[in-house]
């Protein structure tokens, strides 16, 4: 019997529901923690970042306009697909982070649970963040949370999958669309997550995943006039300051990096960070 050559996967970006290579044609080597080669990942350029923002903007109208119930269903579907690929993600996380298979499997399970937890928030966040305000006049005065728009997310560097899910799910569940820069040294679980998203009824462009140098991709995203918010979780302190300065130009919402324990109960902070409050006055008609 002849030895079979296994087929290697070409990891690609995920932009606008498609899987393109980097516009620049560049790739970089992704290694495990020992320095052993795992795969070549695309080294995205600023033009890929630009294309991703265009795709995210295009998807925003449909995604933010979908009913909260529908968004929740789609996110729940993503969790179902993740569950089916549990072994693949566990293997990728174990290779990327150098943890034991059991610890990696626990992380993947936690990530699936987290996704389901956030999916449940889709039609509940308005009850928490919205309000009926008492006013001195014959009006109903209602405040409701609205999605901010296109959010650029720098995924955490140290937690390639659980951390990624923990920053991505709260952004999109409320109706934002996202451009995510995956962990620089461990982008493979993120690029595989794209395959899950693509097969889960999630409209193309709602999530766009880029792999490459975080600093190189974050700079154009932070300065981009059509990005509405910036999650700096994956940026180091110095880079974060630089990016926040660039983001101030068009008054982006910025979530600063902070120490995080991704296994802990996340709370609603990340959900509420990328919302705008819309308040309407409505005559009572009496």
């Amino acid at each position: 019997m002849s030895d079979r050559l296994s087929v290697l996967k070409t990891y690609k970006l995920y932009v606008g529901g498609k899987f393109p290579r980097s516009e620049s044609g560049r790739v970089y080597e992704v290694t495990d923690t020992e320095g052993g080669w795992l795969a070549n990942a695309p080294l995205a350029s600023r033009k890929d970042a630009r294309d991703a923002v265009v795709a995210a903007r295009k998807a925003f109208g449909g995604w933010s306009g979908a009913t909260a119930y529908n968004r929740g269903q789609i996110l729940y579907r993503v969790a179902e697909m993740l569950q089916g690929r549990r072994e693949q993600f566990a293997a990728e996380v174990a290779a990327a982070e150098g943890v034991s298979p059991a610890a990696a499997a626990a992380q993947v399970d936690a990530a699936v649970d987290r996704w389901v937890w956030y999916a449940g928030w889709s039609d509940k966040v308005a009850q928490i963040a919205g309000s009926a305000n008492p006013v001195a006049g014959p009006y109903f005065n209602l405040s409701s949370p609205e999605p901010t728009g296109v959010v650029a997310v720098l995924a955490p560097q140290e937690s390639s999958f659980l951390g990624l899910v923990s920053v991505l799910a709260p952004v999109i569940v409320t109706g934002n669309t996202a451009v995510v820069v995956a962990a620089e040294r461990a982008p493979l679980p993120a690029l595989s997550l794209a395959e899950v998203l693509a097969t889960s009824d999630l409209p193309g462009g709602v999530v766009n995943l880029l792999s490459g140098r975080t600093a190189e991709l974050a700079a154009p995203l932070a300065a981009h006039q059509d990005v509405n918010a910036l999650d700096l979780t994956g940026a180091g302190a110095e880079l974060a300051t630089e990016l926040e300065t660039a983001a101030a130009d068009n008054l982006k919402r910025v979530l600063r990096p902070r120490a995080a324990d991704w296994t802990a109960d996340p709370g609603t902070e990340r959900l509420l960070a990328f919302l705008e409050t819309k308040t309407v006055w409505h005559p009572m008609g009496v």
Partner: peptide
């Protein structure tokens, strides 16, 4: 044109 003159990507809001 705005991208060339300012160095940052513009958007349909502008």
């Amino acid at each position: 044109r705005q991208k060339l003159s300012t160095g940052r990507y513009s958007g349909p809001d502008y």
